[in-house]
Amino acid sequence: MTMQTLADWIGEVRSVTIGATRADGGTRTGTVTVGGERDLSFVGTPPTGHRPLIAYEICDDRSLWPAPVNRFLGDRSSDPGEWARWAGQEYAPDLIRLFLTSTRKRGFSDPASVTSTVESVLQATGLPLIIEGSNDPALDSEVFRRIGEAGEGERLLIGTAEAGHYRSIAATAMAFGHLMIAQSPIDINLAKQLNILLREIGLSYDRIVIDPYTGALGYGFEYSYSVMERIRTSALKGDDDLTMPMICSAADSLTVKEVREADPSESDRISVSWELYAMLPAAIAGASIVCVRHPSTIAQLRAGIGALWSSPGGGA
């Protein structure tokens, strides 16, 4: 009975499928697809495209992880494989996003560990994976090659390429059939530019997921929010260079003063609130994958996304 919305969009966000089952040459128990929207997020009954997904973030070196999350997890986070298995079972995120934080520490010198970590997580969970590699030109080609190899056939989403640093990740994505994240610092022009650069070295637009960079809630989040809205509306207006789905992470929102300095008794509830208040808006602004670190956020986020996606009982 509602009056129709008026926008007359002509574009469509590309659909991207992450993960591969045995039938496709991988080992995932299922695959996920995002994108396909032909209108703003959650608009239309039913909404267009695919429902936004939730990725749970883990890492292989917890010393670079937010303290409130480490406190909550206890020893669970010392083994990435076990961590992934547990989180997948207990909290049922749609994807697992593994950060190889060990490669970002000074003096990293164990590239072989990249292969074993990726393999152990692949074995521990059947969920589609996002893998974040190094951030150092000296390490990139080795680290990304190992990620690519270890996950060959799994249709991983790997990250993160930036304008100054995209060739080795793109090469891995092309060589081993993976997808990649292209990140730009909260600017629609820079997001578009990076996509063009990637296309010009031969990467197909179907393999790119945009990370517009998500500022912390209260500390620049609004810039990210508007850039996401601009990217989405540009795609809907038919700008082919911006038609990729977007991924956002609440990582920065866990580092803000309000969370960091929270009383330990409230730390979990505050962490969940700040992640929820950053990631649900991100989904509304157009993100197709939203990522959180506190496992308790997942259920609330899923409920919110579910309620925005369809009316109770699944009816219109």
Partner: peptide, 22 residues
């Protein structure tokens, strides 16, 4: 009761208002 409907109605209302259609 449906958040989906709230968002859709609000979006429609704002679009109709801004475009001066309604």
């Amino acid at each position: 009761a449906s958040l989906h409907e709230v968002l859709n109605s609000a979006t429609a209302v704002r679009q109709h208002a801004i475009s001066r259609t309604t």
